[in-house]
Write a protein that binds this DNA or RNA. Sequence first.
DNA 1: ATGTCGATTTGCT
DNA 2: GCAAATCGACATA
Length: 202
Amino acid sequence: MKTRILPREFYLRDDVTRIARELLGKILITNFNGALTAGKIVETEAYRGIDDRACHANNGRRTKRNEVMYGEGGRAYIYLCYGLHHLFNIVTNSAECADAVLVRALEPLDGIGVMLSRRKMKKPEPRLTAGPASLTVALGISVRHNGSDLLAPPIRVGECGVKVAERDILASPRVGVGYAGEDARRPWRFRVKNNPWTSPAE
DNA sequence: ATGTCGATTTGCT
DNA sequence: GCAAATCGACATA
């Protein structure tokens, strides 16, 4: 699969919802110890530091865990959720602007055998890479890759020239952020319409 | 120091 | 359909 790695400028823009939309159709690639896996991003969620109560960095919150969100865009923010799930985010915007995009689902493209064995599954079905914690297992991503630069191995994001049309993008409220009050209603979850690899929850 | 809750998934009823 | 699994951040003492 021919892919061009996304340049730093893609991530540095000050518009996290736009970047979350544009990440649909892009390719997430990992290569650990020669085991190459890749998938097309088909579901994302935007989190904005400045005024979004659902964001870990809202209201200037700054901890050891979310420190990388305050760095320059183009790096991975990976954190432990519910004490057991590793969630993969892409940091965007310039330093000190703590925006990030959560990758929620992939369509497997490459290294499907490796993904299956990591997930302890026999056959490819949507639960292989649908859901933010499932795809990190399939691609071998964990919190120890927190802060990893996405322009160089082992984790990269590329494009293959295909763009998802605006009319094929479904926008809806984000999942599991009920605690965020009004901000929970923002339609900042984006999915590729009619793609069977998006996560099952409405 | 102790208790609550979370950007979830899985297995059992 | 529900509950368990399990750690970091935060509030309260």
